Amino acid sequence: LVRYRTISKIPQITLNFVDLKGDPFLASPTSDREIIAPKIKERTHNVTEKVTQVLSLGADVLPEYKLQAPRIHRWTILHYSPFKAVWDWLILLLVIYTAVFTPYSAAFLLKETEEGPPATECGYACQPLAVVDLIVDIMFIVDILINFRTTYVNANEEVVSHPGRIAVHYFKGWFLIDMVAAIPFDLLIFGSGSEELIGLLKTARLLRLVRVARKLDRYSEYGAAVLFLLMCTFALIAHWLACIWYAIGNMEQPHMDSRIGWLHNLGDQIGKPYNSSGLGGPSIKDKYVTALYFTFSSLTSVGFGNVSPNTNSEKIFSICVMLIGSLMYASIFGNVSAIIQRLYSGTARYHTQMLRVREFIRFHQIPNPLRQRLEEYFQHAWSYTNGIDMNAVLKGFPECLQADICLHLNRSLLQHCKPFRGATKGCLRALAMKFKTTHAPPGDTLVHAGDLLTALYFISRGSIEILRGDVVVAILGKNDIFGEPLNLYARPGKSNGDVRALTYCDLHKIHR
């Protein structure tokens, strides 16, 4: 019993810090008490220290592992850092350059016999395009090294910054494609005289377009951006097909006994025919423009016929181009109408809503002055909100995010209106959640004399007048207030005048 009563005193000691020596009952000389009392004092002292730490809000209350900052290894790049964003855009520009100039170089340097010394005699450094290609190869190699040090988000939505895990993730992902696209074939085969082989191998750079397509997928929600990307894709495919079309004609031209190829026909049409040795002929500019003209006309199913396939190889390629053109029509131009419709969806919704308003007016036989006010209010409210119901949009977000959005939407009023000066951010967040926005066209009466005042109004834009009878008592403008002081009276009061809008007004109100 003594032991039980001794232990039962522990909660009292913990909360009230009572010393055991003052209790005459606990001072009985028993061996059990002498053993338990020192333990009680020690526990009391420890609990006292913990309570003191909690009340003082000291940093040592938290466990040590929670006080440590997340460790980022040296030379690790955050995937959302500004440097990584700028670097990704730079790589994107280099990939676009590669997609345009690599097929052009591979096709127009394929057994090209233009006048001038061969590239091997001039030297590697004197070729501007080769120098640019070398810079692109170096940048792609540097990009691989950067990807080995860039964080990523795993399946659990955690940012991984450990170098080993980053390397394994990159090896399992895009490393092989990036490595093949970054191989400097110019340096590996330079001086061997195989410019045709170098041009063909350099087309491996186009593998990076797969990554670019995935990154550009984030802009699919913007109709104008999608339309622009589709047109660029169409032009890029036409450019690639033009390079292939020229390569076919250029390879067949020296081996044909009869002059029936499209390059021969082009030379005869523009007065620059090929001679018996295969030299001469149109310039590279004429060849490229004509090839691009043929691919565009074939892809769009126009086909004027002034550039036509004559050999079997050219006919087979033309059939493939027609098939590609039909697929592009289905996948690209078939979506253009939907994209344009999405661009004008706001206008369509406006006309639909206006039609419903006019049908309501016609069905209920609203008189002319009231009908005009109804239409003007709808037009003004639509121009202010673009038909978007803010309350319906915010309803799907958590309250903390709703408060931040409301604070942002009402920031101008909260910053410049005098009653809100000096208020804490928590108070402003709470008030912003209570605001209701209303609009009024010129001549609209917001409050009639004798109406119950259940709200306090803040003028965000425009001006109003307060009338008693036919006498203008006051004219209020931006950041002015009218209405009933909230919670100042037990019952809502009545208006002693009319409140009429002089201009288009936007008002925020808080109800009782």
Rank of each mutant, 00 (worst) to 15 (best):
A381N: 13
A403S: 06
K202A: 01
L78T: 05
E112W: 13
A238N: 01
G116D: 04
A392V: 08
I284R: 05
K287G: 01
T300R: 03
V95R: 03
A181L: 01
S313C: 13
L92V: 05
E112R: 14
V142E: 01
W382Q: 05
A119Y: 07
I177E: 01
L209A: 08
E158L: 05
S412Q: 12
S220Q: 13
I332C: 06
A392K: 14
R429P: 01
T203L: 10
C122V: 01
K418Q: 06
P70T: 08
K395Q: 08
A242M: 01
T98R: 03
A119F: 05
Q372A: 04
S308Q: 01
F185S: 04
P442K: 09
I339E: 03
A107D: 01
A423C: 10
V336F: 08
G334D: 05
Y350M: 04
M328W: 03
L299V: 01
I146E: 01
W240D: 01
S345H: 12
H380S: 14
A107I: 01
E158W: 01
F140Y: 01
Y246D: 01
F83T: 07
L414M: 08
A247Y: 13
L263A: 01
V289H: 03
G303R: 01
Y97G: 01
L428E: 03
S81V: 01
P398W: 03
M179Q: 01
T385C: 01
V132F: 12
A392G: 08
A155I: 14
L413E: 01
E221R: 13
N250P: 01
H364F: 04
N306D: 01
G199E: 10
R356L: 10
A449G: 06
Q253M: 14
T445Q: 13
T233M: 11
Y104Q: 01
Q253G: 08
S283Q: 01
Y80P: 01
H162P: 01
G426C: 04
L197C: 11
L200S: 04
I166S: 01
Q379W: 04
H239A: 01
R429M: 01
A225E: 04
I237G: 01
I72R: 13
M139C: 04
R342F: 05
I183Y: 03
I237R: 01
D257L: 04
A106G: 01
L94T: 14
E252W: 01
H439R: 11
K436R: 12
N310F: 01
I91F: 01
M231Y: 12
P273G: 01
W245Q: 01
N391S: 08
L129I: 03
S258C: 03
G396D: 15
R421C: 13
Y246K: 01
A181T: 04
S283K: 01
Y80F: 06
V212K: 03
K202V: 01
E252N: 04
T300D: 01
E314T: 01
G443S: 03
A213L: 04
M322Y: 01
G346K: 15
L216F: 09
P254T: 14
V159T: 05
I91K: 01
R429Q: 01
I361K: 01
N265Y: 01
S105T: 08
I244T: 01
W75N: 04
T102H: 14
S220N: 09
C122A: 01
K425M: 10
G223M: 03
S301Y: 01
G123Y: 15
R356A: 09
I388H: 10
T203C: 14
P369I: 02
P254L: 05
A440E: 04
E221N: 06
